[in-house]
Each structure stands twice: as structure tokens, then as C-alpha cells.
Nucleic acid binder design. Structure first.
Length: 111
DNA sequence: TTTCTGACACTAG
DNA sequence: CCTAGTGCCAGAA
């Protein structure tokens, strides 16, 4: 099995853990695209990232994960989550225009 | 082992 | 802006 870097630790582990760890490190008011997260952990499978978040139930290691900070590359939300996600983002000071977020402004590069 | 399915990305038209 | 096609890869069936 391939090992993936686990952000914030000095370890590697499963794809799932790497994804959740990465998401858990996205700062308040910043966002990342599914592709960014994948790339960040050394993968090229953005779809797999979504799968992990869906299965996570919103938490990792018993702690809540800021899944709402992950959107599509075009700054849109997943359809079934639109309301909740936009609401949470606005609460962090992220401006939402016409249901979209400006990636140019809020994208987080990993530090 | 083969097949199918995503909270996706990208290119073309 | 929208649709279609292709690539992607980890899991579940």
C-alpha cells in the first residue's frame, strides 16, 4: 500500500488519514480545492478526496474536521452541501458572491 | 479480479 | 455559461 504524508506529524499513513489531516490544517477563512488537497498529500485523485470526506462524517480521530473549507477548483460547493457550507464559510469571513468563493483570494497553499 | 461509483479536474466545442 | 469526453484512484460489491 502506498504511504501518504500526514500533515503536522512526521509520519505517513493511509490515504484517508492523510486527507483528513490535511483538511484539518486549513486555517480559518481559507479554502482548498479537492485537487489541492490531493496534490498536497502527493496524490492525483481529487475524487478520492471527496470520497474520504463523505465517509468521514465530518470528523477525524473524534475531532471535527473543517470539511467546509474544501470546494471545487472553480470555487463552488458540492450540491448537497451548498447551504451548510456557504453558511459556515461566511461565518469565517469568507465572502460568497453568487454562490461562489474567489479561489484567487482565499486559496491556501499549505502554509 | 473485474466493475462500478464518486463532495473532482481539465480540455474541447 | 453549458455539455461531453477522458483521466484519475481508493473502496465497495
Amino acid at each position: 500500500m502506498t504511504d501518504y504524508p500526514i500533515t503536522g506529524t512526521h509520519r505517513t499513513g493511509t490515504f484517508d488519514d492523510a486527507v483528513l489531516a490535511a483538511v484539518a490544517h486549513i486555517p480559518r477563512g481559507r479554502v482548498m480545492s479537492y485537487g489541492d488537497v490531493a496534490e498536497f498529500i502527493g496524490s492525483s485523485a481529487p475524487r478520492a478526496v471527496g470520497r474520504v470526506l463523505a465517509a468521514s462524517g465530518g470528523e477525524w480521530d473524534g475531532k471535527p474536521v473543517p470539511w467546509h473549507r474544501v470546494l471545487t477548483a472553480s470555487g463552488r460547493c458540492a450540491h448537497h452541501l451548498e447551504d451548510e457550507q456557504l453558511q459556515r464559510l461566511r461565518a469565517e469571513g469568507v465572502s460568497v458572491t453568487d454562490g461562489r468563493i474567489s479561489m484567487r483570494r482565499y486559496r491556501w497553499d499549505g502554509r
